[in-house]
Simulated assay, not measured.
Amino acid sequence: MNSLIRKFEAGMNHPDAAKLILRVSFGLMFLLHGIHKIYDGTAFIQGMFVDIGLPGFFAYAVYLGEVIAPIMIVFGLFTRFAATAMIGTSIVVIGLMHRDNFFSLNEYGAWAVEEIGTYLFASITILLLGSGKYALRPD
C-alpha cells in the first residue's frame, strides 16, 4: 500500500503546473471584478474613499489592481510585482468595505470577509511562489 501511495504522490508532483493553475484561476477570477469596473465605472468606490476623507481619484487605482495585475499574473509577467498589487487591492477592499465586519461570520458560519480574504491569501501565495516555468517571464 505504501508503494502505491508513493507512486501516486510522485506522479502528482508537478509544482510548476500547480503554479500555473493557481495563477490563471485566481488571476481570471480577480479580473472579472476589474471587467465589472470597466463597464460600470468607479463611482461607487470613489464615494467610499470620499466617505472616509480620501480623494475619490484613488478609486482609479482599481484598474491597476483588478485589471492590469491579474492579466500580468495570468500570463506570468512580473508575477511577484503583480501579486503585490493584488495584495494591496485586497487590503484596500477590506478596509473600505469590510472594516465593520472583519471579525464577523455570515449567516452560514463563514468568515464575512471570505471572498476577498481568499483573493488576498492566494495573492500572497503567488507572491511567495512566483510564476513557475509556464510563464512568459518565468521566475
Score class of each variant (00 low, 15 high):
residue 4 L to C: 07
residue 7 K to V: 03
residue 9 E to I: 00
residue 10 A to S: 14
residue 12 M to W: 06
residue 15 P to R: 14
residue 20 L to P: 06
residue 20 L to C: 06
residue 21 I to R: 03
residue 22 L to Y: 04
residue 26 F to C: 01
residue 27 G to S: 08
residue 28 L to C: 15
residue 28 L to F: 13
residue 29 M to A: 15
residue 32 L to C: 14
residue 32 L to H: 08
residue 32 L to R: 13
residue 33 H to A: 13
residue 36 H to K: 12
residue 36 H to S: 14
residue 37 K to Y: 09
residue 37 K to R: 11
residue 43 A to M: 11
residue 43 A to F: 08
residue 44 F to W: 12
residue 44 F to M: 15
residue 45 I to S: 09
residue 46 Q to H: 02
residue 47 G to L: 09
residue 48 M to T: 14
residue 49 F to D: 04
residue 52 I to C: 05
residue 54 L to A: 03
residue 56 G to H: 00
residue 57 F to Q: 15
residue 58 F to S: 05
residue 58 F to Q: 03
residue 59 A to W: 03
residue 60 Y to N: 08
residue 61 A to I: 10
residue 63 Y to A: 02
residue 63 Y to M: 02
residue 63 Y to D: 02
residue 70 P to D: 01
residue 70 P to V: 02
residue 72 M to Q: 07
residue 72 M to G: 08
residue 74 V to R: 07
residue 74 V to H: 07
residue 75 F to N: 04
residue 77 L to G: 12
residue 80 R to M: 03
residue 82 A to D: 05
residue 83 A to N: 11
residue 87 I to V: 11
residue 88 G to Q: 01
residue 88 G to P: 12
residue 92 V to N: 05
residue 94 I to Y: 13
residue 95 G to C: 10
residue 96 L to H: 02
residue 96 L to K: 00
residue 98 H to F: 13
residue 102 F to I: 15
residue 102 F to P: 15
residue 103 F to L: 12
residue 103 F to S: 11
residue 105 L to Q: 12
residue 106 N to Y: 05
residue 108 Y to G: 01
residue 110 A to H: 12
residue 110 A to S: 05
residue 111 W to L: 11
residue 111 W to K: 09
residue 113 V to T: 04
residue 116 I to Y: 09
residue 118 T to R: 09
residue 122 A to L: 00
residue 122 A to D: 06
residue 123 S to D: 01
residue 123 S to C: 01
residue 125 T to K: 00
residue 126 I to F: 05
residue 128 L to A: 11
residue 134 Y to C: 06
residue 134 Y to K: 00
residue 135 A to N: 00
residue 138 P to Y: 08
